[in-house]
């Protein structure tokens, strides 16, 4: 029981990380029909900026999180304005390659700024691990889980209750129709990019204390986040969070009961099975007919 609980905690921590990253993918996809393959790199930049702000400039955690999020969101806006909007023929495959190119570019730039080594930073609050029935949970994990759920909640609120959120949803459903009723869809796309990458930045800040961020951490995180978004249902907010937790917990259980070497293979096998038998994801928000 104690061991099972420990696997569960491990899975929850990783799962929350995957979940927040998946939210970024889903949110952007929902509003723009686009998958940003450089999303993992924005997470990486968030984590490294957080390290610089808290360790280098000695800024307290909360303002540092806010500053990092703003910085990364601003980068996302720049990316949309300079790269995505200027594309002459915005076909999905072209956009995929552009975001892949952006991920390489961002990784290269981060390598120049932060160097090639990994960094360490202390947990948000100095609290010893919490003992629950013999299993131990880091305080930082609680932070990660809480903040992920908070983000999903505020996004839900944004879409359901605010004008901008509803407008963004309208754009996602039909760009032309949204334009006809006076919604500036270009601004909406820009905004969606800002929110999505900003969320990537937050993900980076909360995982920085437990992951030892380095310039090359983004690729695998992005991939796992994408995987989680697909599992839960691309475009569905709660589905992404759920997909993240599911992926994290299954990975941990896989390590516990099967083999740690095959952990990643199992994650992807699960993904294939979901794609084959329930292609819309566990919570399917949209039919699988986009692109």
């Amino acid at each position: 029981m104690q061991e099972f609980l420990q696997y569960f905690f491990s899975g929850m921590t990783n799962g929350a990380i995957y979940g927040v990253i998946a939210l970024g993918f889903s949110m952007l996809y929902r509003s723009t029909d686009l998958i940003n393959f450089s999303h993992g790199e924005f997470v990486m930049i968030g984590a490294l900026t957080m390290v610089t702000l808290t360790m280098g400039f000695r800024i307290p955690v909360l303002p540092a999180i806010i500053m990092t999020t703003i910085c990364v969101a601003f980068l996302g806006l720049l990316f949309e304005r300079l790269a995505i909007r200027t594309v002459r023929r915005p076909e999905p495959i072209v956009l995929i390659i552009i975001t892949v190119g952006a991920s390489i570019f961002l990784r290269g730039t981060a390598m120049l700024i932060w160097g090639k080594d990994a960094y360490a930073m202390p947990s948000f609050t100095p609290h010893p691990p919490i003992d629950i029935a013999g299993a131990r949970l880091l305080m930082q994990s609680i932070w990660i889980i809480t903040i992920s759920v908070l983000i999903a909640g505020s996004l839900h609120f944004f879409y359901k209750k605010t004008l901008a959120g509803k407008a963004m949803h309208a754009c996602a459903i039909n760009k032309q129709a949204a334009w006809l009723v006076g919604i500036p869809f270009k601004v909406m796309i820009l905004l969606a990019f800002g929110i999505s990458t900003g969320m990537g930045g937050v993900a980076g800040t909360i995982i920085a204390p437990i992951t030892m961020p380095a310039y090359d951490m983004g690729t695998m995180l992005g991939l796992k986040g994408f995987c989680a978004a697909m599992l839960g249902g691309l475009g569905s907010l709660w589905g992404s969070v759920l997909g993240g937790f599911l992926l994290g917990i299954l990975e941990a259980l896989g390590v516990g009961f099967i083999s740690s070497g095959l952990k990643d293979a199992m994650a992807f096998l699960l993904l294939l099975l979901v794609l084959y038998f329930r292609p819309g994801g566990i919570i399917s928000a949209v039919s699988v007919k986009r692109f």
Binding site: E3, Q6, Y7, F9, S10, G11, T13, N14, I17, R136, I207, I210, T211, M212, D216, M217, T219, M220, L221, E251, A252, L253, V255, G256, S259, S260, G261, K263, D264
Partner: peptide, 20 residues
Amino acid sequence: QENFGVSDTDMTAQLTNIRR
């Protein structure tokens, strides 16, 4: 014997096996 991935961020599951 346990394994971990190059970019894994949490090894408590493997270490739980080891502790057992």
